[in-house]
Design a binder for these strands. Structure first.
Length: 429
DNA sequence: TCTGGGGTCCTAGGACCC
DNA sequence: TCTGGGGTCCTAGGACCC
């Protein structure tokens, strides 16, 4: 009997595919979805990939190409993508309870205990594809192998080679076939091998997946450390990375955004910063953590070397751990006062919450009454419920600003929140 | 004019402890 | 001239992921 078997299920061109579900006219139209602030292309349709557009290309740099080929660009619509992601996961969970949500569009599943119910891993993969397509409208590919790294590799094969029809199980191949495929794939495609490692591996004559698989793991360890050694072992079928069914609580929470334009005055920076604090604090409470210190940073535009640059950051310890948006906002405000200097054109600000602990393990305070704590907990609970129900930002602290916000990011072509907002349901006429 | 936003892990080196 | 052998914790920087 085989050991553990992992499947990696991944939505093709996830953000693009989400848009197409609700606007079928976009099928086969070359299109991209842009990052926040309508900056870079972070999702590309196959038509755009075929034109040679790389991941992360700034939108303003592809204007000519876009005009020539009629490329459409959408602002990112994370409310929609997050909801679609949850739907895919709930479909997959029915296939195997051992599931790890790895990213917004990828999940690992343990399949060895359940594949026989579907007549094998390959048939199970096809079944998952059909059901996800039927129930969510999204196209997925499935890769199966004895380690997570091999499942990732199999997924890559499934995506790139029509012969697999969207599902690739490495166990279904002969040894010779596996060797053949591995010799054809660049080592840079391996999960955990980025740009730097690729360069250094090249120098050692390791160019393909097969080369890395055949390298001596101990040599890899001495040259590159334990991380790549694990990768090497995983390629050889030795499972080093286990499934993490429970997402561990985050150790830090960051909220930051570039501005639509440059900001020079402190009042506007404070509004933007307060909004980021509010978002980060929501995440903090969602994972039931408290924050012991926060870091505030400012950035000028690094793409404009002729402008004076200033990128300060300051860490502010809190009197005691808290998840109260108002206290965190006050701390962030004083941090901003410490680092703000007139005369710079700022492009971005943000906040990082550090020293996170579980709220259930909060120490009794010497300085704060329980009465005040209860009041804060109830207030924050109410704010969160209102914002969940009526949409985020429905209720916020006055520090976030009330008028037209000059610092707000560009989002010029966002689709509707089709699945989470009654007023924006798709209409069939 | 326009260039994203989130995370994790590992390592090396220094401070400090007994 | 000789100058131990462990530890821990923290931080900065580098690498990776999506």
């Amino acid at each position: 009997m085989l050991g553990p078997q992992f499947a990696l299920v991944d939505v093709n061109n996830f953000y693009v595919s989400c848009e197409r579900v609700f606007q079928p006219r976009l099928q086969c139209v070359p299109m991209v979805v842009l990052s926040n602030n309508d900056g870079c292309a972070v999702a590309r349709s196959n038509e755009v990939k075929a034109l040679g557009v790389k991941m992360g290309t700034p939108w303003f740099k592809m204007q000519d190409l876009a005009r020539e080929h009629g490329i459409l660009a959408f602002s990112s619509n994370y409310t929609l993508y997050a909801d679609m992601s949850n739907r895919v996961v709930s479909v997959l969970r029915a296939f195997s309870p051992d599931l790890e949500v790895y990213s917004i569009d990828e999940s690992f599943l343990r399949v060895d205990r359940v594949a026989h119910l579907h007549g094998g891993a390959c048939a199970m993969g096809q079944c998952m594809r059909e059901r996800v397509a039927l129930w969510t409208g999204l196209p997925v590919c499935v890769g199966v192998g004895p380690t997570k790294t091999l499942a990732k590799l199999a997924n890559h094969l499934a995506k790139k080679n029509a012969v697999f029809n969207g599902v690739c199980d490495l166990n279904d191949m002969t040894r010779a076939e596996r060797v053949e495929w591995m010799s054809k794939i660049a080592v840079s495609e391996v999960w955990g091998v980025g740009r730097r490692l690729t360069q250094r591996l090249d120098l050692l004559g390791i160019h393909t997946v097969l080369d890395l698989r055949r390298a001596n793991p101990m040599d890899i360890r001495t040259h590159f450390g334990v991380v790549l050694e694990r990768t090497c072992q995983e390629l050889r079928g030795v499972s080093c990375l286990s499934l993490e069914a429970m997402a561990p609580a985050k150790k830090q929470i960051i909220a930051s955004r570039s501005f639509g334009g440059a900001i020079e005055n402190k009042a506007q920076l404070l509004e933007a910063l307060s909004s980021h604090v509010a978002r980060a604090a929501e995440k903090l409470r969602e994972q039931k953590s408290l924050c012991a210190a926060l870091q505030v940073f400012l950035q000028t535009n690094r793409f404009k070397p002729n402008e004076p640059q200033y990128n300060p950051a300051v860490l502010v310890p809190l009197m005691e751990p808290t998840d109260d948006t108002l206290k965190l906002t006050r701390a962030a405000s004083s941090a901003l006062t410490q680092i703000f200097k007139m005369g710079y054109r700022y492009k971005k600000t943000g906040v990082m919450f550090c020293g996170l602990t579980q709220a259930s393990q909060r120490q009794e305070s010497l300085f704060e009454s329980n009465l005040e704590k209860d009041r804060s907990t109830r207030l924050m609970g109410t704010v969160d419920r209102i914002n969940q129900h009526f949409g985020s930002g429905t209720i916020q602290s006055a520090a976030c600003g009330v008028s037209q916000k000059a610092w707000q990011m560009r989002s010029n072509n966002r689709s509707s929140r089709y699945t989470t907002c009654w007023m924006e349901l798709p209409v069939v006429s």
